[in-house]
Simulated scan of single mutants.
Amino acid sequence: MELFDRTPEQLGFVPRGRSTNRLPVPPPADLGVGEEDAPVQRRREFMTTSTGATVALVLGLEETPVSGRLALSDVDRINGKIGRLAAHFTSVGGGGLYPVATAYLARLRRTADGCTYGPRVEQALNSAISDLCSSAGWAALDAGEPGQARLMYADALQSAILAGDRRGQARAWSNLAMQARVDGRLRESLRINRAALESRQARQDPLIAALLHARLAIGHARAKDRPAAARSILAAERAYDRADRAVPPPWLRFLDGAELAGLAAIAHQALGRLPDAETATAQALELLAPSMRRSRAFYSVQLAELQVAQGHLDRAAGTVADIDTGALSSQRITERLAVVHRTLATT
């Protein structure tokens, strides 16, 4: 339903208890697929192709022009496809979507080189490319490609600068700071994060400021600076409270009360405050929307890790038993879950 924007009936499914005798008889195979049967054909394609291929098919990524005159309406359609890709990342994880994102990025590079357009369209296209690079970076992490993620974030920053897109620049700086922290370069991560917070976009957009402060709190916690971590957590909460409730851009829709609680939990865990981290993680899981399946799996694994670390093995076993990774495409999450399973099996 999410992929095709159709009801189950329009996709050819029959509700339970309803007889199939009243349904139209499909035409013979040699007659081809008619207009009414196209959704059924699309459902069959969905069932027999990979997640990445299915998303590419549904979004019509090959429809983006690579020659001719490009208009703002074309860039609007490109942004729509990128936004839907970002929504799929939060739903199923980015591992299977990483090849789709990089293939679409290559196509947009061809669009930029092969089409003609004016200054406004050029600016909008660079902004879209920056957006896709940042999303592709997150997908690379889920695919187990941290080196590629780092390159994607750098490309995102470059395209955002070319576009004069301050929000895109703030996003790219935030991702680069996070990646530096993941790579163990804590001082560099803190410097990047502070610089991003001093940008005009962070000062003007409380939601971006909330994300930057929350990630800065994790950096301070990893550096064992408890007072600075506490100040950053409080700053993130205050910034989030100041944010208006207008619909944010697709890439930022993951940031809500649940995500802030989850990020605070990571900071508490880095400081060794495991009970506080467990409480905050449980709060994140309670607040998560049903559509945030990747985040639910991520924080459920985090909760199990915290329970194991505190010796609560029975609770951890119950937590992992409820984790559903069947439809999830994230090597990053499944590897952590495997470690928890091994620990429980050998303890």
Rank of each mutant, 00 (worst) to 15 (best):
L3G: 09
Q10K: 07
V14T: 08
P15I: 07
R18Y: 14
R18T: 12
V25E: 15
P26M: 11
D30P: 09
V33S: 14
G34L: 11
R44Q: 12
T48P: 07
T49C: 10
T54A: 12
V58I: 14
G83S: 08
L85P: 05
L85N: 02
A86I: 08
A87D: 13
A87Y: 00
G93A: 10
G95D: 04
A103K: 13
A106F: 01
A106C: 05
R110P: 01
T111L: 12
T111G: 10
G114D: 12
P119N: 00
R120L: 12
A124P: 00
N126E: 12
S134M: 09
W138L: 10
A140S: 15
A143G: 05
A143Q: 02
G147A: 10
A149N: 04
Y153G: 02
D155L: 04
Q158T: 03
V182M: 13
G184Q: 03
E188S: 03
I192L: 13
A196P: 09
L197D: 05
S199H: 09
S199I: 04
R200W: 05
Q201D: 06
A202N: 04
A209W: 11
L211D: 03
L212H: 08
H220R: 04
A221C: 04
R222H: 12
R226Y: 00
A230L: 15
A235L: 09
R242V: 00
W251T: 07
L255K: 11
E259K: 10
H268P: 00
H268R: 06
R273G: 03
P275T: 08
P275E: 04
P275W: 06
T279H: 10
A280C: 09
A284G: 06
L285V: 03
F298H: 13
A304K: 02
E305H: 02
Q307A: 05
A309N: 00
L313Y: 14
T319Q: 08
T319W: 06
T319V: 08
L328W: 06
S329A: 11
A345H: 11
A345L: 07
